[in-house]
Design a protein around this nucleic acid. Structure first.
Length: 274
DNA sequence: ATGCCTTATTTCATAAGA
């Protein structure tokens, strides 16, 4: 089974490249993040022509996740139990009773695909360590840990894939000195990843294909991709039963090149599942 | 040090991303 995860930064803007990539890489299961589309407007018909079933979970302008599968798509979960809503200082108290405002953001969708329990996850950015968004990010990870712990009681083959918005180590950012004081590298964020690994999930580190670091994200600005000034924040966290069946894993940096790319590259994991 | 790009939207300006 070929499993992949890709933050596409708008499925609408990326649709030609998504279809091209599906046709070329032929993942059996693809987790998408930042679809920036409603569930209804996801181009399920277009990917369906390539044989993919779709489980989309979107909200419109921001966020949004999906799973595409050639090998079945069952027990779809939109969001996870206990997933927090953002209730930061930017929400007017008088609006807190508005329907929808406190609905959890579309940051998680799960499904069973060909014997594998798959999650497509888009962690909150956090903005700055002082921000309410940062506290929300840590709450989100804590709730995710609880939800995954419950599933792991009965799902030995599970892969939590997506844009975790945390670089696990200093080797996962192009210049650690420049990230001092920034989100994505703080000890509490890295501890949140360690807490997920403590559930028995293993970080499936991909091969970079070029250069020493398997970065998965490069800023659009300042020629960051050409200078390989990136970060590894798109991760596949797999149970031992899955991680022990990895035949290979790589970052498809070709997908970051050319006209109209996402700022993230896909991570591809080949599994030899029983 | 923001914002050297890019996206979507209550669009010709803003919010957000990481």
């Amino acid at each position: 089974m070929r499993l992949a995860t890709w933050n596409v930064n708008s499925v609408k803007a990326r649709l030609p490249r998504l279809l091209e990539w599906l046709d070329e890489a032929k993942p059996d299961v693809l987790c998408l993040q930042e679809i920036k589309s409603t569930t209804a407007l996801f181009p399920a018909g277009e990917v369906g022509e390539l044989g993919y079933e779709t489980a989309a979970h979107g909200e419109g302008r921001w966020n949004g996740v999906a799973i595409l599968s050639l090998v079945g798509l069952e027990n779809v979960s939109r969001g996870f139990p206990g997933q927090p809503s953002y209730e930061g200082e930017t929400v007017e108290p008088a609006l807190l009773d508005e329907p929808g405002l406190r609905t959890p953001e579309a940051r998680a969708v799960g499904a069973n695909c060909g014997g594998l329990r798959v999650w497509s996850l888009y962690a909150p950015n956090g903005r700055t360590p002082e921000s309410a968004h940062y506290a929300y990010k840590l709450e989100w990870f804590a709730a995710l840990r609880t939800a995954l712990a419950a599933e792991l009681e009965h799902e030995p083959q599970l892969a939590a894939c997506g844009d975790f918005n945390v670089a696990p180590t200093d080797d996962d950012v192009w210049d650690p000195k420049l990230f001092i004081g920034s989100t994505h590298v703080t000890p509490p964020e890295r501890q949140a990843l360690a807490d997920l690994r403590a559930l028995g999930l293993q970080d499936v580190v991909p091969t970079p294909m070029k250069g020493p670091h398997p970065f998965t994200y490069w800023d659009y600005r300042a020629g960051a991709f050409a200078k390989d000034q990136g970060m590894r924040i798109d991760l596949v966290y797999a149970t031992a039963a899955v991680a022990g069946r990895v035949d290979g894993a790589y970052v498809d940096r070709e997908a970051r090149k050319g006209k109209g790319p996402s700022d993230h590259a896909p991570v591809v994991v080949d599994l030899n599942l029983s």
